[in-house]
């Protein structure tokens, strides 16, 4: 197994390089670059002097050097831990990412736990009570959850929260706390804001996991070994949770990586709508402004997360299922 994991990690390096190439090409495809956009914006605000500084800025950012040179410098520095600087606020990319990462992780982890924690039991209930009113209700709920884009859901929640409390729960902290150091009050304030986005994203996630769980459970419940288990006189609880559920978990585990990208997707647009200080919002801004090192680093980070997620799900699969062997 350790050999297998090492192998998988090694394969990730070329994939990562390819992702970096693609990311770089995407950033470089437009005729404009960060400086030309910046100059345009400044000029629009009446700051015409900036036009003369264009070349100096390019020089400073290394944007005037040949493309391959820019790329190799980026990649080499990247693997040495230097992610470059953000053009738009002139701070190191790593600093900006570290600023945004904790909130992103907390919100994502919350949504992740909620989706699995609620989705799985509901899915099992739905499958073991197939066609009961409860199952039909949950199925309807799941289809709405899957059909309704999570950003719209976030918006609708936002409106209801506003109507109920009179507060616009945008962002993850109230104004007075934004630049405050960590404190209990800030944490509570964070929670009072975060539930909204977490619920919105987790709603879709829960629906998705519930559906998958239900389908898997129904498929497993139809298999002959279930009859054997019942014929052995095992209590129904043991049949369902020890055996059927563990078998049904198998395809769910393969989904682990998918659920990660699901969350990244979910929070991408929800964050923008709700103005959450997550890494996805930064990513969108950076992409639009062609702040290439920032956008590139986040793209790589996201891709690595998904790859690691897939690796974890494969390892978990081997651990759960004696038939799976990686050598």
């Amino acid at each position: 197994m350790p050999i297998y994991i090492a192998k998988r990690l090694l394969i990730m390096v070329p994939t990562l390089l390819m992702i970096m190439v693609v990311g770089f090409i995407i950033m470089k495809l437009p005729a404009s670059d960060f400086v030309s956009q910046y100059v345009l914006r400044q000029a629009a605000q009446g700051n015409t002097g900036i036009v003369a500084q264009q070349d100096m800025l390019r020089e400073q950012f290394g944007l005037n050097r040949p493309l391959y040179e820019q790329f190799f410098t980026w990649v080499v520095n990247f693997f040495r831990g230097d992610l470059g600087i953000s053009f738009s606020d002139l701070r190191p990319v790593s600093t900006i990412i570290m600023e945004r990462l904790p909130a992103t992780l907390v919100v994502s982890a919350m949504a992740f736990i909620v989706s699995w924690g609620i989705g799985i039991p509901l899915g099992v209930y739905s499958a073991t009570h197939q066609y009961s009113p409860g199952d039909i209700g949950l199925t309807a709920f799941a289809f709405i959850g899957i059909g309704l884009p999570d950003f719209l859901l976030a918006l609708i929640f936002l409106v209801f929260a506003f109507l109920a409390t009179g507060d616009v729960l945008l962002g993850l902290n109230s104004m007075q706390y934004v630049n405050q150091p960590f404190s209990l009050a800030k944490a509570l304030d964070f929670l009072s804001h975060a539930w909204l986005s977490v619920t919105a994203v987790a709603f879709t996630g829960t629906a998705f996991i519930m559906r998958v769980t239900r389908n898997n459970m129904l498929e497993e419940l139809g298999k002959p070994y279930v009859m054997t288990l019942r014929a052995k006189g095992l209590p129904e609880k043991v049949v369902i949770w020890k055996h059927v559920f563990r078998n049904a978990l198998h395809p769910l585990v393969t989904l682990f990586g998918q659920v990660l990208s699901f969350l990244i997707n979910g929070f991408a647009i929800t964050s923008i709508v709700l103005n959450l200080p997550t890494i996805q919002t930064t990513y969108l801004q950076a992409t639009i402004q062609q702040d290439m090192y920032l956008a590139g680093a986040i793209l790589v980070l996201i891709a690595v997360t998904v790859m690691v997620g897939n690796l974890i799900s494969d390892v978990m699969l081997a651990w759960l299922d004696p038939r799976v062997r990686y050598d």
């Binding site: 390819m18 990660l260 956008a295 986040i298």
Partner: peptide
């Protein structure tokens, strides 16, 4: 290998990047 790479991208961020192009 190319497919593996495309699968490592979560859809929406890549869509955003491409749409911004």
């Amino acid at each position: 290998r190319v497919i593996e790479m495309t699968m490592a991208f979560p859809q929406i961020p890549l869509w955003l990047a491409l749409a911004a192009l």
